[in-house]
Write a protein that binds this DNA or RNA. Sequence first.
DNA 1: AATCCGTCCAACCGCACGGAA
DNA 2: TTTCCGTGCGGTTGGACGGAT
Length: 267
Amino acid sequence: MGRQPCCDKVGLKKGPWTAEEDQKLISFILTNGQCCWRALPKLAGLLRCGKSCRLRWTNYLRPDLKRGLLSEYEEKMVIDLHAQLGNRWSKIASHLPGRTDNEIKNHWNTHIKKKLKKIGIDPFTHKPLPIITTEKPPQNHQTRQEPPLEEAAVMVSETSLQSTVTEAKQEDKIPFDNSLEVDYNFCIDEVPIIEAHEILVPFVNLSTPTSSSTPTSYDVESSNILEDLHFLPTLDWEYDLSNIMSIWNFLTDDDSERNTSTEALVM
DNA sequence: AATCCGTCCAACCGCACGGAA
DNA sequence: TTTCCGTGCGGTTGGACGGAT
């Protein structure tokens, strides 16, 4: 049967938005609120499809958006959330007030992926990348003795990942995929199941507005995330977060500081 | 100065999902 | 239950920009 296109594309404008178009969209939404996106362009006098208007609004014009590069803290959150949630950018964005899924996705693809690769971590699995040597790889992986330092560190994220996937299967009805169970490669019996709201609460607390006009801003510098997370049951959060911070030092430190970070990983 | 090349990011595209009829 | 519509989501694209040659 085929779906109808979201709008009649004939005569509609594509490409970058002009300041005039932006102004029309902003003033219409501020006056009338976000109504039916399909009808909006006509009502607002725009030669755009509704989808384009929605995207422009949510990704660029919304007044509560933060602009500019992600802070260090936000990047750390993105990495940890990606380890838990995978490429579910909208879910990740929902934990970062004022940031859009598109923005986070772009930042991941252009910055964070490179940083992770640079330190030998696969950005897709959050596991160490295979070490490239001139020798042939051993036939039997069980002969491997010690995991690289990064592997020990990223186990934190894998733990979170497993619990979140388990939860997602229950709540979001993700189709069960046996390959997931195999890939994570650790015993889920040892992993406490954490509900989503238990994970989110500390970050929600952190987002206490610092000014009434900017409800999405929060004072990252003055927050003590370790203290905020202590209420969580059964997990040694201080230890785990210290490891996360150590991973982050790998991402942000220059080479002269890297040895210090390495020491932190083996504590 | 000109060209090439890589990076970044706004915007587009197609699919999936949920709700209404 | 089925179909249709509106919206959301994630992957991809294309153009602007800046640095290297």
